[in-house]
């Protein structure tokens, strides 16, 4: 089989184009979407903490969590139907149990500590989510650990140094950070 340099170049261009297209397609159905979904949940939820008062805040979080959870389930099902990932299927259930237990333990801690200040309660939840994020980073993608550490550091800065705008701080940097990370992961492919 003989090929001219021009034909070889065209074939390599096709290979590269298809590889790029595949990576983009995988990332379009990948984990980035969950970051964006929960980034928006945090963005609107913490904004509700800042701008609203009383029971409205709790209801806002409830609606946002239900919406975020439902969207995550729908996206997860869609993802599962397009690819069969042996490596992920094996650990997928354990990851699910890990997050479930993490939220149960977070709830138990809030029950025991019973923080009078809503900010402290919010900070405890943020710390638990970041523990989960970093654990997932260790398991799946080490580069995302740095983002988890950065958001944790920013949350602590907001909690201790900027208590007056803590919720806005978390909406912009926590929620915004997750949305930005989602789009970063998508564009990196």
């Amino acid at each position: 089989m003989d090929l001219s340099p021009r034909e070889a170049e065209d074939a390599l261009a096709v290979v590269q184009m298809m590889m790029d297209k595949t990576r983009r397609a995988i990332s379009n159905t990948g984990a980035y979407i969950f970051l964006i979904i929960w980034g928006f949940v945090w963005l609107f939820g913490f904004s509700a903490n800042h701008f609203l008062t009383g029971e409205t805040v709790g209801y806002s979080w409830m609606v946002l969590d239900i919406l975020g959870g439902a969207l995550s389930v729908v996206m997860g099902i869609r993802l599962g139907k397009k690819f069969r990932r042996t490596s992920i299927n094996k650990t997928g259930k354990n990851i699910g149990y890990f997050w479930l237990l993490l939220f149960v333990y977070c709830g138990l801690l809030l029950l025991v500590v019973n923080p009078v200040d809503m900010k402290t309660g919010a900070m405890i939840i943020v710390l638990f989510v970041m523990i989960g994020w970093i654990a997932m980073g260790l398991l799946l993608s080490t580069t995302s650990i740095w983002w988890g550490l950065a958001i944790t550091a920013l949350a602590l800065v907001g909690y201790y140094l900027l208590p007056g705008i803590f919720y806005l701080w978390m909406a912009a940097l926590g929620g915004g950070g997750m949305i930005a990370l989602g789009f970063y992961i998508r564009s990196r492919w």
Partner: peptide, 27 residues
């Protein structure tokens, strides 16, 4: 050079499949 793989559609198919991880499959 492989004549079976070099056919344009098959070249694109293989480019997609080798981009996946070894244990992964596509619908």
């Amino acid at each position: 050079l492989n004549e079976i793989i070099h056919q344009p559609v098959r070249l694109r198919i293989m480019a997609v499949l080798v981009t996946l991880k070894e244990d992964d499959a596509v619908d």
